[in-house]
Amino acid sequence: MAERSPWAEDRARAIVDDHRAMPGALLPLLHALQEEFGCIDEPAVPLLADALNLSRAEVHGVVTFYQDFRRTRPGRHVVKVCRAEACQAVGAESLLDHVKRTLAVSEGETTPDGAFTLEAVYCLGNCALGPAVMIDDTLHGRVGPARFDALAKTHRAEDPA
């Protein structure tokens, strides 16, 4: 899992300067900031508004429109469980119930130990090998409850104690 630095204005300004000249720079910039800091921190909004000559409301509107952009830092691993139709046809809903029960979180929440943030997503493009789960940027197919538990255990074991 990538290191997530705390908010640092100098670093943020450097990222903004690298991207601001692109046409339609706001989405690439938000991705770059989230990649660096793990989320879109509040001070990012006026910084982006100023750099791109937009109002704060416009930037806020974009940040909140897209599912991907977070306002708080996630856990060490982000678990995305697909709940679209193709995965539903092979038991995605009961897998999601299992994940919620075993991690003791709901969608959008992070486990108390900070290991996992759970998200429900709609299609990971692995529709012939469902149920599909993505942990960080790695896709897993045919994930039943037992396989999910094994994956969760492996990821917890990899983390520093």
Binding site: G24, L27, P28, H31, E58, Y66, Q67, Y122
Partner: peptide, 22 residues
């Protein structure tokens, strides 16, 4: 360019808005 988890951006005009940073 990379979207950000919005299904509607597969609609062509929504995609153009998104590409423009909105």
């Amino acid at each position: 360019r990379v979207g950000a988890g919005a299904y509607i951006c597969g609609e062509e005009t929504a995609m153009l808005e998104s590409l423009e940073g909105r």
